[in-house]
């Protein structure tokens, strides 16, 4: 099959402290490419590989895009395809998308995640370290190696373990941010809150966690959720917006229970 690609090319990195839109766009622009003899069995990334092989032979710089595992689990890949992060299929990462999902002669627009918190590094590659910093702020259980008791000492109802798993399955791809009209990271952060909230091991730090994660998220310059549910729709792991509701509850709860004087958090260790 034959496809026409409209790909965002940008060689200079966007500056995170950017003030004007120009600082973000840099020399970026949409460039048009024609590709012929594409097999419907090809994955979307293999199609881009093919384009890059052709560009390289012509001595042009190949299109930079993130990827690693190519089986939908590492969360490295991800581009906006015709306005939809990870493309037309539900519950699918870009690397799991196959060309059979497109019509012969299709026009395909390929752009990077767009968010102030995700500056473009080059072409379709963005800097998602904001996610790591949010996790560093408290998406963990404070347990040192060796301090653990027997794994079966605390029973965890299957339902709770499953709820926790549904949130923990997040691959940190950033599609939720890319899809949200407000570039909000609430699905990602909510998933972290929900994961630990639903396990007994995570509960002792719940108040601390809710506040530090939300604070970190706000510091990174993500937008606010206005309940539009695009994130849930594009999430390759189909994480439900329920986790955002859970996070809202947790945040309010921790604020309400916060002791006025010291600002100390009950339960937490902040």
């Amino acid at each position: 099959m034959k496809v026409t690609l409209h790909i965002w090319r940008q060689s200079k990195a966007s500056t995170k402290s950017a003030s004007t839109e120009e600082d973000w766009r840099q020399d970026g622009r949409i460039v048009r490419y024609e590709l012929d003899e594409i097999s419907p069995a090809m994955s979307f990334l293999e199609m881009l590989d093919e384009l890059n092989e052709q560009l390289t032979r012509k001595g042009e710089e190949p299109v930079a895009f993130d990827h690693d595992c190519r089986e939908g689990i590492c969360g490295a890949c991800g581009v906006v395809i015709n306005g939809v992060p990870h493309g037309p299929e539900r519950g699918t990462t870009t690397c799991q998308l196959h060309m059979r999902s497109f019509k012969d002669g299709a026009q395909i627009w390929i752009e990077p995640w767009r968010a102030a918190a995700f500056p473009v590094v080059r072409d379709l590659v963005v800097d998602r370290s904001a996610f790591d910093r949010v996790v560093q702020a408290g998406a963990f259980v404070s347990v040192n190696t060796g301090a653990a008791q027997d794994a079966n000492a605390i029973l965890v109802p299957k339902a709770d373990a499953d709820r926790a798993f549904d949130a923990a399955t997040c691959i940190g791809c950033g599609a939720c941010v890319a899809a949200c009209k407000n570039a909000s990271a609430m699905l990602f952060v909510g998933a972290k809150v929900s994961h630990f909230l639903n396990l007994p091991q995570g509960r002792p730090e719940r108040e601390q966690r809710a506040q530090s994660l939300v604070a970190a998220m706000d510091r990174e310059g993500f937008g606010n959720c206005t309940n539009q549910y695009e994130c849930e729709a594009v999430c390759p792991k189909e994480i439900p917006v329920r986790v955002i509701a859970e996070m809202n509850r947790e945040f309010v709860r921790s604020k309400v229970r916060q002791e006025p004087a010291s600002g100390k958090l009950l339960g937490g260790h902040g």
């Binding site: 347990v143 190696t145 926790a164 994961h195 091991q201 995570g202």
Partner: peptide, 10 residues
């Protein structure tokens, strides 16, 4: 034991 304590949802 360690993984469960970290909140790994086995």
């Amino acid at each position: 034991d360690q993984a469960v304590a970290q909140g790994v949802p086995f």
